[in-house]
Computed example of a mutant assay.
Amino acid sequence: MSEEALVLVLPLSFSLGIAYFLLIRYFLWHWNQIPAWKTPVDFQPRTRVSILIPARNEAANIGSCLRSILAQNYPETLMEVIVVDDHSEDTTAALVLAIKDPRIRLIHLVDYPLPNGLAFKKHGLSTAITQATGELIVCTDADCQMGADWLASMVSFYQDHSVQMIAGSVNFHQEKNLLERFQSLDFMGMMLLTGAGLRSGKMRMGNGANLAYTRSAFAAVGGFNGIDHLASGDDLLLMHKIEKQYPGQVLYLKSLAATVYTLAMPDWRSFFQQRLRWGTKNAAYQEWRITAVLGMVFVLCWSILLHLIFLPLAPVTLGISLLIQWACKIWADDQLLRAGANFFHRQDLLRIFWPAQLLHVLYIASVGFWANVQKKYSWKGRKVR
């Protein structure tokens, strides 16, 4: 490679690497500014809660999910659980009905015809909300489990802050292999970015597996109108609508007790399909900062990948350039993930930090590309475009 190219490549690589490092440091600073929440010892529940659980082919998980919800340290008279059976082809509905508890209701989505162009999950949630009696809507997924103080932590935070929407943490657990541990490490970092983004007011994200919002706010923004054609986005895109209507009233709940746990994807195909599903809503983001941040991470990962591919052509120049970029990424990621491991008590995940770096580059580059090109994926037996 010529000396002129060296003069051009190195400053660009340095600038991209430093930009990533400063971005992570910015969000990490905001994460550290979020006060950790603990349910007050004198907490008096007074909020009726409707817990919504969309479920499709979740026979393997729905029982443990419901048992963990029914075991919450929260007054039975102030909670209801609505399971929306989304055309399951297994025994999901039968397992729900087998649990004899007056707090549980089952909605068969097949009884509510889907209007053309609408996504099943959003249609199911909207249907459940019309029948819910709670002031606070709490959403989770059928493959999730939570500790006994999850709901009390959510509601005590809501009563203390009087907000319209709360984003809680979601972690993976019970990992069995490198891929599952990588997902746990990666998602743990995403939770810190979620909290920091909301705290800073610069990047609002959330996860539908642990999300709460007032029924009045849902009605005020027209529910999922305008985003109901997208299979994903029942969390982040709804959050953007509520934040626009109620500025400053969407907060992150930094609480280990309020964390929801789910299982990582067991193989590469299901992992790719899951992340492809998440990525297909990128074009609908109403906040340009999210697109900008995701775009920068995507460009950095592709830059590192291309450096590795073409390294033999110019080992000195590209080697120096690669070293600069990857050093900045490793330095930033190490600080972010260590903070997450300390808060969530998952220091064990740091053992795979080094292989996870390469997996992260490959995953961001490939999924980011296909999410913007293919626009279709398979999820729970459905082909989605």
Rank of each mutant, 00 (worst) to 15 (best):
V9S: 03
G17V: 09
Y20L: 12
L23P: 11
Y26L: 05
N32P: 06
N32G: 12
A36G: 10
A36C: 07
P40E: 01
A55S: 08
S64G: 14
R67Y: 15
R67C: 08
L70R: 07
Q72F: 04
P75M: 06
T77H: 15
A94Y: 06
A98M: 05
P102A: 00
P102S: 03
T127M: 10
T127H: 11
T133L: 04
T133A: 05
D141A: 02
A142M: 07
C144Y: 05
Q145C: 11
Q145A: 08
S156Q: 07
S156M: 02
V163I: 06
M165D: 03
N171I: 05
F172Q: 03
Q174I: 00
L179I: 01
E180H: 13
D186T: 06
M191S: 04
L192G: 00
G195M: 02
M205H: 11
G206Q: 07
N207K: 10
A209P: 08
T214V: 13
V221C: 06
D234E: 15
L237M: 04
S255W: 15
Y261C: 09
T262E: 15
A264G: 11
P266N: 01
W268Y: 11
W268F: 10
R269Q: 12
R269V: 04
R269E: 09
R275C: 02
R277I: 03
Y285D: 02
E287S: 02
R289L: 05
T291H: 12
V293A: 08
V297K: 13
F298E: 04
L311M: 14
V316R: 13
T317Y: 14
L318Q: 07
L318G: 07
A327R: 12
A327F: 14
C328F: 06
K329N: 09
Q335W: 05
A341M: 01
F344N: 02
D348M: 10
D348W: 05
L350H: 03
R351Q: 14
I352G: 13
P355H: 15
A356Q: 11
A356L: 07
L359E: 04
Y363M: 15
I364F: 13
A365Q: 05
G368D: 02
G368T: 01
W370A: 08
W370N: 05
W370D: 03
K383C: 08
R385Y: 12
